[in-house]
Amino acid sequence: MPVIWNGLSVAFAVLVLCCGIACTPGASSSQAENTNGSHLSGRLTLTGSSTIAPLMAEIGRAFEAQHPDVRIDVQTGGSSRGVADCRSGLADIGMVSRALKEDEQDLQPFPVAKDGICIIVHQDNPVRELTDEQIVAIYTGSIDNWKDVGGSDGEITVVNKAQGRSTLELFLHYFHLNNTDVAADVVIGDNEQGIKTVAGNPQAIGYVSIGTAEFDAGQGVPIALLPIGGIPAGTAAVAEGRFPLSRPLNLVTREEPTGLAATFIEFARSSDVHDLIRKQSFVPLAE
């Protein structure tokens, strides 16, 4: 057994070494930018929503490049862990991928981006509008033919997301569904796979992140974005807060942030990171 643990630690050491090598160039190249700014150092711990974590890891990397003595440590565990860790002081900043609840008003929210999803169908599908009730009926299997919702005769292929995806969570939450109620015909992983599945099947219906869908539809991929509650789907509507199937991505702190935390939050809300936000198919806040 000790042999195995030795092996494990060797493997781990190699991994750490590789990471070190991979990180060095970024850190050294940005030294120059930092000379005129105030010198920041220390470690910042963020915990919470697995939706926001990848984005914060990217933003943290960009921040570290500007401030070489700062380490941003991002851990996941769900929005509720973000709230709990922030309250207990285990984390400097919590990540919460929803609006704060009534009993969480002791925390300070700082929205960094919006996450919106939209329902998509194939371009050749004549259906251009579905009510919330119809969408629920389609996803639970009580409507199984497009002619029942004003389309042409044909079985509906329901595309659902795999367990754990934030888009799935938001979708289920908005339509008050349990994942066990959904009668899926296809289960997919990421947004691109969802779009290709729907683009290749005129009878399919799916939902994906609005940023990705808008981009792909603009590139000529044969999908149509359906409105929700009469509001046309689009990143603009999400940014303005008019689109119902969306939620804020918040950083939360226990007290008014100061020093390193304040600088980081300011950075995460600045237009410098809008590209990073779009790359994760989230929607930056309106200017």
Partner: peptide, 17 residues
Amino acid sequence: GLVVLVPIIAGIAQPGA
């Protein structure tokens, strides 16, 4: 498979995948 084969199979029987 996703962009060629699955749509062909979907033409025979849904959902293709």
